[in-house]
Design a protein around this nucleic acid. Sequence first.
DNA 1: GGTATTATTTATCTTATGATAAAGGATTAG
DNA 2: CTAATCCTTTATCATAAGATAAATAATACC
Lengths: 187, 187
Amino acid sequence: MEQLFTYFRKFNSLSQGAEEAIAEISNSITIQKNNDLQSVGHTCKTIYFIKKGVARIYYLKDGIDITENFFFENNIIARVESLLTGRPSKKAIQILEDAEIISINADALFKLYDRFHEIERLFRKIFESAYVDTVNRIEGMQFHTAEERYKALLHEAPDVLKRVPLKYVASYLGITQVSLSRIRAHR
Amino acid sequence: MEQLFTYFRKFNSLSQGAEEAIAEISNSITIQKNNDLQSVGHTCKTIYFIKKGVARIYYLKDGIDITENFFFENNIIARVESLLTGRPSKKAIQILEDAEIISINADALFKLYDRFHEIERLFRKIFESAYVDTVNRIEGMQFHTAEERYKALLHEAPDVLKRVPLKYVASYLGITQVSLSRIRAHR
DNA sequence: GGTATTATTTATCTTATGATAAAGGATTAG
DNA sequence: CTAATCCTTTATCATAAGATAAATAATACC
């Protein structure tokens, strides 16, 4: 739990009472590589914090597996398009390295927003930050060649290329695995 | 002002005191077509509400004008990557149809978050909703041909194609104006 | 209302990436 | 340790989209 609270402090420090309230609605999970933490079609009611390991959000478009994003240790992961709308998610969360995870019950968390203004503020800031990351990612996707996007990833998030199978990286970059391989072969 | 409060009610209704507090930090602006409402390089400290008209956020990449997004009446517009981080924005806001706008002083607004929990909640919900839209847009950008993206726009936001010059639409779709023209000519 | 400017389309050529197939490598399971 | 499976690369061919240039259409300005 301490690792989670340390993460929280980067956004908004909580009182002990608020930390305890979150601890009460949280659970520890360990899960092995290649398993789905959450599967397609069910409404997301959980926010996860990755203590250790790697995960990705993915979905199937016309039967093709597409990675929306990767998540590493010390980060929150949630399928916001379901969590924040209450609609069933078309996406799944898959574990890519054996992981230790804290799950937070989102319904209970949202109820805590009324009791603890500071918790609402904390998650407001967390999601604002994720929102900014997403806006910046759109910029990276407009008017860049696949090679530029690959090089940017190599530069900005080399961990992805070291720890994640290339077949998942390709769809994240918006290209086929074969194209990615060609780009890596220098041209 | 009433038009803004009506918009707010879709997310979170405010008490009269909260509405008055927002009214105090807001101003009405009218601005003509083709002018920049906000220019590149300065830190965004304003949230705008469009009562009437059309606007876009754009930036220059290697001297090329790229549209990040379009905004129509009854919507909030802000350069969140600056507003929520305090960093200077690389983007500008341009008016595309003569507009009536309400500007809200963001520093003053964020101070109101302490006095009015309900205002913080309102804007939390507004930005969460915009976040979800942005996540969904990424999905649309991965693994779709330019033609599919054009047709999706035609279907989901025909107003864009009716009210906005095509040269701005092309970069929004991530293609050149010439490509867009070719796609419109059916193939 | 006519001219100048700006926006859009069309044409030609080039290139990056997709699709498919197959060969090597690497990893996993028994 | 071996076999089977899965991942990555390489090769070939087809095609969508970029770059550039020029023609046409629309809009704005005097």
